[in-house]
Amino acid sequence: MRGVRIIRNVAPRIGNQGFMPDLAHNLDAVHQRIALAAQVAGRDPRSIALLAVSKTFPAEDIRAAHAEGQRAFGENYVQESLTKIEALSDLRASIEWHFIGPLQSNKTRPVAEHFDWVHSVDRLKIAQRLSEQRPDNLPPLNVCLQVNISGEASKSGVTPEEALRVAREVASLPKLRLRGLMAIPEPAGDVEQQRAPHRALRELFEKLRAEGLELDTLSMGMSGDLEAAVLEGATIVRIGTAIFGARDYSH
């Protein structure tokens, strides 16, 4: 990408229990990437929130990242996340929990009860259940409508063509606050190719805003396409590997 130097993840340090990421260094490197891409895009880097994707990593890693100033964490698996939320209950007042994975209708209740955000609302039924199950004593649950922006058969999400209708229905539900759109674009080779689906999501976002929906969030961009997402208007980037290192799914 012209004018942008991409800072990739650094080698992990070796800790007492094997390889552990240097979270302070990695977080700083990611913030540098965000700031550099924002500078090229003519944006204020403070308008882009970093969501640390902590799925498969232990609560201790989240606690360490929290100690370095990170506050928003993204989880994909309901049971795993509930275990970590409980283990980190002493930090609850200063942690923002985001559910970003596929959500089955029979698992919406614990998400409605324990999370602050859900990025992966991919159909109206999920939104309705989250609304019905959100406790009265909690503020409205922030949600994003997931859009299958690349049209992949393996990806969840509404189609761009049905996004306006579904978004209006979700926005009308009590105990939810529709904040914006989320997508996981198909991987692409270079930054210019990566920008195309992010641009399409931003244009859809702008269309929905023009139709009267009060949206403020574009959740897009991961470790490999962060720069493209920021250039196209992302307000939340979801970064896991570049912060915590490679994932181990063996357990």
Rank of each mutant, 00 (worst) to 15 (best):
1 M>N: 10
2 R>S: 14
5 R>M: 11
9 N>L: 14
10 V>Q: 10
10 V>S: 09
15 G>Y: 14
19 F>T: 12
21 P>Q: 13
24 A>S: 07
25 H>A: 15
26 N>G: 05
32 Q>Y: 05
34 I>N: 02
34 I>P: 00
35 A>S: 15
35 A>Q: 13
37 A>P: 04
39 Q>K: 13
39 Q>P: 12
43 R>K: 12
47 S>G: 10
50 L>T: 02
52 A>D: 03
54 S>M: 07
56 T>L: 11
57 F>K: 13
57 F>Y: 08
60 E>P: 06
63 R>C: 05
64 A>H: 14
65 A>L: 09
66 H>L: 11
67 A>Y: 07
69 G>V: 09
77 Y>D: 11
79 Q>W: 10
79 Q>T: 13
80 E>F: 14
82 L>H: 12
83 T>H: 15
89 S>K: 15
89 S>F: 08
90 D>G: 06
92 R>W: 10
94 S>D: 15
97 W>V: 02
97 W>H: 03
98 H>N: 05
102 P>R: 14
103 L>Y: 02
106 N>L: 12
107 K>I: 06
115 F>E: 02
115 F>G: 01
117 W>T: 00
118 V>D: 01
119 H>E: 09
119 H>K: 07
121 V>W: 00
124 L>R: 05
125 K>Q: 15
125 K>Y: 04
125 K>G: 06
129 R>A: 08
129 R>W: 01
131 S>N: 08
132 E>N: 10
143 V>H: 00
144 C>F: 03
147 V>Y: 14
148 N>P: 09
149 I>H: 07
151 G>L: 02
151 G>T: 03
157 G>D: 02
158 V>H: 05
158 V>C: 14
158 V>T: 09
165 R>V: 15
168 R>I: 01
173 L>D: 03
174 P>R: 06
174 P>G: 05
175 K>H: 12
176 L>S: 00
177 R>Y: 01
181 L>P: 03
183 A>H: 04
186 E>G: 06
193 Q>E: 12
198 H>I: 07
198 H>Q: 08
199 R>S: 13
201 L>N: 12
201 L>D: 14
202 R>D: 06
207 K>L: 03
210 A>Y: 05
213 L>D: 01
217 T>D: 04
217 T>Q: 03
219 S>Q: 00
221 G>L: 02
223 S>A: 11
236 I>K: 00
238 R>S: 03
239 I>D: 00
243 I>W: 06
244 F>I: 11
